[in-house]
Computed example of a mutant assay.
Amino acid sequence: MARLLIVHHTPSPTTQSMLEAVLEGARNDEIEGVEVVTSPALAATVPDLLAADAVILGTPANIGYMSGALKHFFDTVYYPCLTDTTGLPYALYAHGNSDTTGAVRAVESITKGMGWSRHRPPVTAVGDIGREESEACWELGAVTALAALERHEERTGKS
């Protein structure tokens, strides 16, 4: 079975709403053969990442940067996973009260250094989220679950 790992930091009601929309999309009944695993960024481990066929990252934009929790995740997995996760499809959602640019740039810099492949443009929201942002998060979850399935089939030769 393919595995989609969602690593998130959800300190606010808004980031929690974004996570819930991503999960709804990823767990869509029309998508079969994908196990969706969620982990708070401070609890995600090297084995979690190595078992993933795709990953979705979720973060608030704190003081112009990704959350410290997501940075801790990257610090934990960077060297142990550097060569074994090359080509890993990933997606990102981020929320900020005034801006998300620095957080997105930081995540994209690290994932590029790890050789990951951005599957979709990031979903970003500033301030309150509405229907458009929720739908974008749902779609992000669904299409990244499909990317996990595709990568799993490529890696295992199973379809």
Rank of each mutant, 00 (worst) to 15 (best):
M114L: 14
A51D: 14
I31W: 05
L88S: 08
T10Q: 10
V126Y: 03
A106Q: 09
P40V: 06
K71H: 04
T59W: 06
P40I: 07
Y78C: 07
V46H: 01
D128Q: 15
A52V: 02
R155G: 10
H9Y: 11
I110D: 00
T38P: 00
C137R: 04
V55T: 04
T86E: 12
E32S: 14
A52G: 07
P47C: 09
T101V: 12
G25I: 09
Q16S: 15
H72F: 11
A2H: 01
P13Q: 03
E139L: 13
R105M: 12
L70A: 00
W138G: 11
L19H: 05
V104E: 07
K158W: 13
Q16R: 15
T156Q: 01
R27W: 09
G115I: 03
K71D: 00
D53P: 05
R27I: 03
P11F: 03
S39G: 05
L23P: 02
P122D: 07
T156W: 03
W116E: 08
S117T: 14
E154M: 11
G25D: 01
I110G: 05
M66K: 02
H72V: 08
C137L: 03
A69I: 06
E32N: 10
D48V: 04
S17G: 14
L140P: 04
F74I: 05
M18A: 06
L23N: 09
L50M: 13
E32F: 12
G141Q: 02
R120C: 10
G102F: 05
P122S: 11
V123D: 03
I63M: 14
L50E: 15
S17M: 12
C81G: 10
S117Y: 12
L82M: 11
G25C: 04
G96K: 02
E139T: 13
R27Y: 10
A41P: 04
T15I: 02
A147T: 07
D84Y: 07
G87T: 07
E20H: 10
D75E: 09
T10E: 06
S134R: 15
H95I: 12
T100H: 07
A147C: 06
L82S: 07
V104P: 03
V107D: 01
S98D: 13
A94N: 08
V7Q: 01
G141A: 01
S67P: 05
N28E: 14
A44G: 02
A51R: 13
A125N: 03
L146H: 08
Y93T: 09
R3N: 12
R151E: 11
Y90T: 05
F74L: 08
G64V: 00
